[in-house]
Amino acid sequence: MHEVDLGLDTFGDVTIGEDGERVSDAQTIRDIVEQAVVADQVGLSFFGVGEHHRHEFAVSSPELVLAAAAARTDSIHLGTAVTVLSSDDPVRVYERFATLDALSHGRAEVILGRGSFIESFPLFGYDLKDYEVLFEERLDLFSQLLREQPVTWQGTTRAALAGADVYPKTEHGITAWVGVGGSPESVVRTARYGYGLMLAIIGGAASRFRPYVDLYHRSLDSFGRDPGLVGIHSPGHVADTDEQAWEELYPAMEANRNAIGAERGWPPYSRLQFQHDVGPEGAVYAGSPETVARKIAATVQTLGADRFDLKYANGTLSHGRMLRSIELYGTKVAPMVGELLAAS
């Protein structure tokens, strides 16, 4: 039997309330904490909060939101989705997550990435021409910091360290992943440092990522690393029926895709595209509990994944609908996925 953990991710999308008005950033952040509490209550394994620096998303400091969630939850692991390491300082990232790990009694995880947006680079004074070297050097330094021993390090994008010790120390270390969008170079780098591989599958069939999973495992072996974990991050929404889930999700996704797409030159999002995305060959896991469970189980089997994180917050989807989605995901989808995997 292949067992899989089920988790949730949010970027802190600023939503529309039941009255049709835009919810404040402050209320959105408070709502995220409530969503984490419900996720813990229904027995889910992970709750991730992404970092962004734009008006569609309320969370620019995920660790603070996760610390608030840590104080109100008992079992669920808490982490990012993702931490934009390229425009942050690895020492401060380690310190913040070590602190979160203490507050949560060892439940902190970090998913490192370059992010899909670039606002943080000019905001914090970084040049986009250094995009690659910033991530490479910071990942290298962070890898050394995770050993929790004095670090001597030198690079080109920040001050050198000579025997620097960093605090606080954790009790059992921090679980760390790298979020990968699908480049072979990123997969090999993830394996070289021994991180878990978190695949962001936001378009197309999951099966096209199987070569990346195989490359990851081969690379781990070639580098002499221990076997690693494979995770999946994909958007979705759960409601009582397929039709209800699709009718609730489409307007929210359409608003979000079109707002971002206007900046990136994407064509307008359509019902036709949406129906493909929620189908067997699409990357959106939306529908009734049975529909979502079957699609997750098929993806887990195809990729041999250890964790599946549903990005449950999508555009302007309301807080109430997200809470219901979380409830169904934990109480209905998770048991069904376990049964389907056991039966296979």
Rank of each mutant, 00 (worst) to 15 (best):
T291Y: 05
V178M: 09
Q35D: 03
M1V: 04
H55S: 14
L85N: 02
T157M: 02
R264C: 01
G338S: 14
P268D: 14
L220Q: 03
T241D: 14
T157R: 12
T170S: 10
R294V: 02
L85F: 02
Y329M: 13
G236S: 11
L328A: 03
M253L: 13
Y126Q: 11
A162V: 01
D13R: 06
T73R: 13
N314G: 03
L328M: 06
D40K: 05
D74N: 01
R92H: 08
S288N: 05
R324V: 01
H52Q: 14
G282A: 12
T73P: 07
E263I: 02
V59H: 14
G261W: 08
V300W: 08
R324N: 08
G20D: 04
T291Q: 06
H55G: 01
E281K: 14
T302Q: 15
L272A: 15
V37M: 10
L44V: 11
L303I: 08
Y269F: 14
I296M: 14
E34V: 04
G315R: 01
D74Q: 11
L303Y: 13
E34Y: 09
R189C: 08
I76F: 12
Y193Q: 06
G228F: 05
V84A: 10
F308G: 02
W246Y: 15
S87G: 10
K295G: 08
A205S: 15
M336P: 02
G194T: 11
P267V: 01
P90T: 09
S270C: 07
E327W: 13
D19G: 06
R218V: 00
G115W: 04
I174L: 13
A283E: 03
A200P: 00
E339T: 04
D74I: 02
M198F: 07
G196C: 12
V23P: 01
V151Q: 05
D242V: 07
S104L: 08
E327A: 05
E148H: 03
R210G: 05
P289W: 07
T15R: 11
L328H: 02
A162F: 00
A36R: 06
A245S: 13
T316A: 10
L303K: 11
G279V: 08
L112Q: 14
G179Q: 05
T299Q: 04
